[in-house]
Computed example of a mutant assay.
Amino acid sequence: MPSKPCPRLWDISPTVAPDAPIFPGDEPYSLRWTARLSPGCPVNLSAITMSPHVGAHADAPLHYANDAPAIADVPLDSYLGRCRVIHAIGAAPLVTVEHLQHAEEGLPPRVLVRCCERADTRWNPAFTAYAPEAVEWLAARGVRLIGIDTPSVDPADSKVLSSHQQLRRHDLRVLENLVLDDVPEGDYELIALPLKLQGACASPVRAVLRELK
């Protein structure tokens, strides 16, 4: 019998590189070699430095609340399972409830919103974020994780982080800096597990969507 085709995967993580867009003042990605293949060395060995917010990443509650869990202490169930991609392309400056209502029926516990025709490859301080009312609306419908294809669920100049505080209030998880350029609106399986980084305020993720069968 012919083998069944494997479900299609969408890689929704940008490449982590020295020129990856980051918030001003954040630590960029840097790689150095601590050992190189040679007659006296059997391996190449590298070391990296970077903010855990470079590229696709999961914020920990510690990022926006003192005495809240670090990323190593956050349960993993929200980062794995059925997910809906909702298109709100052109929504600016905020994704509002009105941008989400067309996809309300049967919402799964995870929602990723595509705002961009193409994800930014350079820092753009005018990126689209979530209205806090939209976060609250999703939480009221049983959503446990939200994501976005921009650097943050709050605007770049926000000093109160109203949408992050809604995440804290409702104990939601969040993914930021996703790349949803080629992902049609619809339902998928999300796989985006954070690293078990002790004490860290966030973690990089290799986020993928898998076709549902």
Rank of each mutant, 00 (worst) to 15 (best):
P24M: 05
P24T: 02
G25V: 03
G25W: 01
D26C: 06
D26L: 07
E27I: 11
E27M: 15
E27F: 10
P28N: 01
L31N: 13
R32C: 15
W33I: 13
T34G: 12
T34E: 13
T34A: 12
A35V: 12
R36I: 12
R36L: 14
R36E: 13
L37C: 07
L37A: 08
L37I: 09
L37D: 07
S38D: 10
P39R: 00
P39K: 00
P39Y: 03
G40M: 14
C41L: 08
V43E: 10
V43H: 13
V43R: 15
N44Q: 13
L45K: 14
S46R: 13
S46D: 11
I48G: 12
M50E: 13
M50D: 08
S51Q: 08
S51G: 12
S51D: 09
P52N: 04
H53Y: 08
H53C: 14
V54F: 04
V54D: 06
G55Y: 00
H57D: 06
A58F: 00
A58W: 00
D59G: 01
A60T: 02
A60K: 00
L62A: 05
L62C: 05
H63C: 11
H63N: 07
Y64K: 02
Y64N: 11
Y64H: 08
A65W: 08
N66D: 15
N66L: 15
D67R: 06
D67T: 08
A68S: 10
P69Q: 11
P69W: 01
P69R: 08
A70H: 04
A70P: 03
A70N: 06
I71G: 04
I71S: 02
A72I: 00
D73V: 02
V74E: 04
V74K: 01
P75Q: 11
P75C: 09
L76Q: 06
L76C: 10
D77T: 08
S78L: 14
S78D: 12
S78C: 14
L80C: 08
G81I: 07
G81W: 09
R82G: 05
R82V: 10
R82P: 05
C83P: 03
C83G: 04
R84S: 07
I86G: 01
H87C: 15
A88P: 01
I89E: 11
I89H: 06
I89K: 12
G90M: 05
G90F: 03
G90A: 09
G90C: 07
A92I: 06
A92L: 15
A92V: 12
P93V: 00
P93N: 00
L94F: 04
V95C: 02
V95F: 02
V95R: 00
T96D: 05
V97I: 09
V97P: 06
V97H: 00
E98Q: 13
L100S: 03
L100K: 04
Q101R: 15
Q101M: 14
H102M: 13
